[in-house]
Design a protein around this nucleic acid. Structure first.
Lengths: 229, 229
DNA sequence: CGACCATTTGATATGGATCAAGCGATGTGG
DNA sequence: CCACATCGCTTGATCCATATCAAATGGTCG
């Protein structure tokens, strides 16, 4: 069974549902952009959308492709804060500077919405204000889950990552990962080697099958959920 | 120079300021509770305030003491999501269930504010709505910084933790930590032994002095900031 | 003063990092 | 359309930061 999810500008996204046990948390807050003027911009892979500490001029909605937010430290270590896939909103801040930088992990089309316009609108329209709050709160919950994942060993983090991605963008029993291993590693606080070994291990216990590097088949979803719980 | 921060019910908190270089981020969003009816409740140390998955009936403001939000996994591993000290608001959610559980790390007094009342109020009063959004966004920024800390080695995480605590609750050059080493360890994703050794190491390089277990003297604040950056 | 609990310190073990090939997919130029 | 170069990923060998195990110490409270 497929559910068609709302999407701002033509490009429709489908989401596979409850043959998996999705926990009963609301993860569907988004911004209704149908009545909002914004403009579309295209980016190739690995392009910076904005830098940390840059002014927050826009709020972004992913139409296609994928985005990472991250910070790179002086010594080269990088931590990825989150990934955003079609339908997701990012770049939302109440302060006037971004906390992290944002970059594409794949060729992407983004809808840019003027921040000050939106904030002004929210001041008059409670529905908009409420949506902004909801999106922020959803983001908060996502980041909290990310923090929780650091309590787990490598393979379980990777399992959790696959579960999350499956929930957010899988059609049927396959997940098409929109990022490189290095991105996954920097998101989970691991190295590419460890991510790779974890995937191999998950394949060995028949939880997944790696079909085409970035294409993962979910063989035993309950096992993945159990591992990452 | 001391700044008196607003506090709901008598108990006033002071905060030492810019002899340290506080980065120019807004970290002062809070909820003005002066016109909100709520009720005060006292908790002794290590008491559960609410459990994960419990209904979100209240929003809480710390008047005195300190609170941790956390999740404990089946195998006993525990991850602390955040600490809350006097003036901080926690328990804010847009969903109707809490994501994490909340517990005191010290004897505490909390102001409980009815959630549905507040949400109803926010629907009519834009100032309240805006404050709720600001508090959520501030929380988001805090949790994002927490995620970033996982990219760093043990001693730097501990240094960062001290800096954060100093910013939030120090009077003068001392920090009175309102939690045990185990709490710090579970917040940073380390063991108590590693936290302890890191503290000893920071003492050896004359960055801090551990005066009374939970009382830390900031000897070289710039060094701490440098380490944790 | 004595008992207990939190913390520190010491010795050893280990999960994941690092270093180093090898391999397979994807793209490019001839 | 194929040979080859490149890049991303996997696999193997070794190392190290932090975990684990085990005392010893010190603070706190009855």
């Amino acid at each position: 069974m497929l559910i068609q999810t709302e999407c701002p500008t033509g490009s429709i996204r489908y989401r596979a549902t409850p043959h998996r046990n999705v926990p009963p948390i609301c993860d569907s807050a988004s911004l209704d952009t149908t009545n909002l003027k914004g403009f579309m911009t295209s980016y190739s892979e690995d392009r910076e959308i904005y830098g940390a500490m840059e002014e927050t001029k826009y709020l972004y909605k992913v139409v296609s492709g994928a985005v990472r937010t991250c910070r790179t430290f002086k010594d080269g270590r990088r931590q990825i804060g989150a990934f955003y896939v079609p339908g997701d909103v990012f770049g939302i801040e109440t302060g006037d500077r971004h906390t992290l930088s944002a970059e594409t992990t794949a060729p992407s089309k983004l809808l840019l919405i003027n921040r000050s316009t939106l904030v002004a609108l929210a001041a008059r329209d409670n529905a908009i204000a409420s949506q902004l709050w909801m999106v922020t709160a959803l983001e908060l919950r996502k980041v909290q889950n990310h923090v929780l994942s650091f309590a787990k060993p490598a393979r379980e983090r990777v399992a959790g990552f696959i579960v999350e991605m499956a929930r957010r963008l899988s059609v049927s029993d396959e997940v098409q990962l929109p990022m490189k291993r290095q991105d996954i590693a920097d998101y989970l606080g691991l190295t590419i080697e460890t991510v790779s070994r974890s995937l191999t291990s998950l394949e060995n216990i028949a939880a997944v099958k790696i079909q085409k590097r970035r294409q993962i088949v979910l063989r035993d979803y309950p096992a993945l959920v159990r591992l990452s719980a």
